[in-house]
Design a protein around this nucleic acid. Structure first.
Lengths: 327, 327
DNA sequence: AAGGTAGCTGCACAAATGTGACAAGCGCGG
DNA sequence: CCGCGCTTGTCACATTTGTGCAGCTACCTT
């Protein structure tokens, strides 16, 4: 008797996504558990599942973002840091979250705050631009689900390698969570040569994709640092040699493909002419630029981003906030 | 050494509400617990509290609505009932939640769904009209916190008795959760005589308060039934005799003070001339009327409300939904 | 100043939850 | 047709969480 196939046996009238298999059941399970406050065992009995299954469904619903936990953010736990940041850097707003325990990834917690902020702020038909990275990934996991109305625009080219942290996956996750349509830049993030870059940028599809930034109301940006802790190496964006030469050229990191020095100016370096992404001027024209990045090692590039006028709203953690205030 | 007084010792620069005592600490605790996934004991150690204290703070944050749990609602667990309701009653939308176990109050779960719906839909500067009752109370507890921009308008007069279920408290909770300003109707819900009602309604303040409905973009209404299970008695709105005579007059319940019969027309009864609330025509002019009510015993008045054109969006539970579909 | 209330701590225990090992069932491709 | 790999069920166990009790302190009321 395939009891547990019952839900799958009822085909949903709407287009069903890849992970819809469970979604309806999961929603019900979570409802009983979180909203009614029943115990996992009670839910299991009521729905005819094993407790373990319920347990797994809940865990999955939590991690997949089907259920979101929202903490009142205005009563920020780190309100003082926030107001000092706003004052010192003339920000529209700052959100500072506690730095996590050392064995946790800063990006997940900063991303969580970013996702919550975006969910709170994004209007029903706004277009959201995004860069890429672990923070963006975490933000996508922390969006409250929507269904239509929004558009997600990826602001940078792709990475050939796989893994869950890459622009296409970031954009896809984000779009999926918002039920949004999505625009991708169908080129590598970094072309092999300046000539190739120019040719690509001129080609119809790519030009159109990059031009999509004009319709962006709000952009969620992250910051890539060039310290030894940089993940850029790990994700294969650049080689260690390139990293070193970028540092020699004065770069402290990049924001959406724009390599900046400590005072927020673009650096001169062969690499920068090979990067494919939305140009700085267009980016600055976006109504609200939200920069989400945390960890003390990112303080320099965050500061550079602010000075480069790429940050209206800063979402970061205590460690980076303190480093920023100490400049 | 009063460690745990530290937070209270730092006066907040912003106006601090009655329950601010803990809010900042609570936000931080919840952040560590829910977002970072630390155990209560770890949080306790980290912040220098007892585990028990953490436990209580979390429980309180949960019940006070400082932290909200949101389940993707579009993937409704009861999607089929929803679409049948929409079809049969020509609704704009229907949300059906599973009926809770018999020892739980339907109103809390329907209210939870209503709160989530309002949080999802309410624009940043909209004005929300509300009626009153247990469902509204629960809805208020399930709003995601906001800070300014909205206005809450109570659509009915007050009850003299205390207790947490009364129009003023409902409106105040709702407004507090949204950081909204609030308008009250400063009269009893039911005046002693028709003459008194008329005089009150004509008086400047009351007239202005009732006229505030014109700026309402969206209203959250609940339904009061006149079955034996009705809470109207318990809250002292009407006496048992009045209830009986209302039933004799054909009434099946009331919505925002309007007593309706089974087909959704106003009934004739001495009481209806003594009720102080926003008139039907003005109510019907509101852009979106959300009716939140659950339990099989409310089916009749829900149906009456729909027929009376007081419901664009219905939020209810399985039991009521099935009863409605069986009509 | 006395008395009472509320909240805190520390301890202890029961209930609930997360997890691992292993067997059973199912779909899929060779 | 068979076995492989994946998911799910079963059982068992460690951890985490909720809660009650006794005693204490701080604060508020009278």
């Amino acid at each position: 008797m395939s009891r547990n196939k019952l839900t799958a046996a009822v085909p949903s009238p709407v287009a069903e996504d890849a992970d819809d298999f469970d979604a309806k059941t999961a929603a019900r399970v979570c409802w009983h558990y979180f909203k009614e406050g029943q115990t996992q065992e009670e839910v299991a009995r009521r729905l005819g599942f094993t407790r373990k299954r319920i347990n797994r469904i809940i865990a999955q619903a939590l991690s997949s973002g089907l259920v979101q936990i929202t903490i009142d953010s205005q009563i920020g736990a780190c309100a003082e840091l926030e107001s000092r940041l706003i004052a010192q850097y003339r920000l529209r707003r700052a959100i500072v979250v506690p730095s996590p325990a050392p064995d946790l990834d800063v990006r997940t917690v900063v991303g969580a705050a970013a996702g919550q902020y975006i969910s709170d702020q994004l209007g029903p038909s706004e277009t959201l631009g995004i860069s890429w990275g672990g923070t963006i990934h975490a933000a996508a996991q922390n969006l409250r689900r929507r269904h239509g109305g929004n558009t997600v625009v990826s602001l940078v080219g792709g990475l050939a390698m796989s893994g869950p942290i890459n622009p296409y996956d970031n954009a896809a996750m984000m779009a999926r969570a918002l039920g949004a349509t999505c625009r991708y830049v169908t080129t590598p993030m970094i072309a092999d040569s300046r000539e190739l870059r120019d040719a690509l940028v001129r080609s119809t599809h790519v030009a159109a994709a990059l031009a999509a930034v004009r319709s962006v109301n709000r952009a969620l940006l992250s910051a890539v640092d060039l310290t030894n802790r940089s993940r850029a190496l790990e994700y294969g964006v650049i080689t260690r040699d390139t990293l070193r030469s970028l540092r020699t050229a004065g770069a402290v990191g990049d924001i959406a493909g724009h390599y900046l020095n400590a005072s927020g100016s673009l650096v001169s370096h062969p690499l920068v002419d090979r990067v494919i992404s939305v140009d700085l001027t267009s980016l600055r024209a976006v109504g609200e630029l939200v920069l989400a990045a945390g960890g003390a090692h990112k303080a320099a590039i965050i500061r550079a981003g602010i000075l480069a006028r790429l940050c209206h709203v800063l979402i970061t953690d205590e460690a980076a906030a303190e480093a920023l205030l100490a400049f």
